[in-house]
């Protein structure tokens, strides 16, 4: 029987008395590769914040491997890429390796040779090993995005939460990034939730779709989503052909 990674039941979240998520229920199982889609302001990032224990539900529950999302030991198994990259000061005197080492903080292995080896592996995985000693503020937007992806992968997570990871990547890098996720999902059974508007990327690899607009509009297999009117509603009728074709 597949392990339940995330289970949300009647989840509601309010910000300043405004309901941003309403009666959200779904279950993510081990090995799922879920495309999380929805219009701007539909509550995608709030849902992710709930999963990470950064936002509290007003009603309902969300559990992580059967426990509260804030449970410390669970953080070691999760890799997270936030949506915005402008959260840091571009003149922050931090090297790429230092930024990536932040991903090891939950495992308390940021220092020492084991930590350095993991950082090197993550940098190699993203093909940015040669910029490990550069300052983060010196890099282009695309390179910075790769660094934050490396930070999400450095602790070799079992569950990856990626909030619009390809927004600053060029087409070639985007392709290789999706291939890397496909490999992690296929070979290592890494469970992935990917928030994206990148229709090509979703169509090619995701096994399930979660369409959110304050509540769950659709949650199910990709093939089922492909033929549904939800697909046209979100992506437009013309894109249906592109996505479904790629997935085939």
């Amino acid at each position: 029987m597949p392990v339940k990674v995330v289970k949300a039941e009647d989840l509601c979240v309010d910000y300043h008395s405004v309901r941003v998520l309403s009666d959200v229920s779904f279950t993510v199982q081990e090995g799922d590769y879920i495309g999380l889609v929805g219009p701007n302001g539909s509550g995608k990032s709030t849902l992710i914040r709930c999963m990470l224990g950064l936002a509290r539900p007003s009603r309902g529950t969300i559990s992580f491997f059967g426990s509260e999302p804030s449970a410390m030991r669970l953080r070691e198994t999760v890799g997270y890429l936030p949506q915005r990259m402008d959260f840091f000061n571009p003149r922050f005197p931090s090297t790429v390796a230092e930024v990536v080492s932040q991903g090891l903080i939950s495992t308390r292995r940021a220092g020492g040779s084991a930590g350095r080896e993991r950082i090197d592996r993550a940098l190699e995985m993203l093909d940015i090993h040669e910029i490990g000693s550069r300052l983060i503020g010196e890099l282009s937007g695309g390179q910075q995005q790769k660094v934050f992806i490396a930070r999400a992968l450095v602790n070799e997570p079992d569950f990856l939460i990626l909030d619009e990871p390809t927004s600053a990547l060029d087409p070639e890098t985007r392709e290789s990034f999706f291939s890397l996720l496909h490999e992690l999902n296929g070979k290592r059974r890494v469970t992935i939730i990917l928030v994206t508007h990148d229709i090509g990327g979703i169509g090619q690899y995701a096994s399930k779709m979660l369409y959110l607009d304050k509540t769950v509009i659709f949650f199910g297999g990709f093939d089922e989503f492909c033929g549904s009117e939800n697909m046209s509603r979100f992506f437009g009728a013309a894109s249906q052909h592109i996505i479904c074709h790629k997935h085939d």
Partner: peptide
């Protein structure tokens, strides 16, 4: 040191990591 660096660079990520 690791926690202080993490919070200084990206407080939300630090929080999500259990710091």
């Amino acid at each position: 040191y690791d926690e202080i660096f993490s919070i200084t660079f990206d407080e939300e990520f630090a929080r999500a990591s259990g710091v």
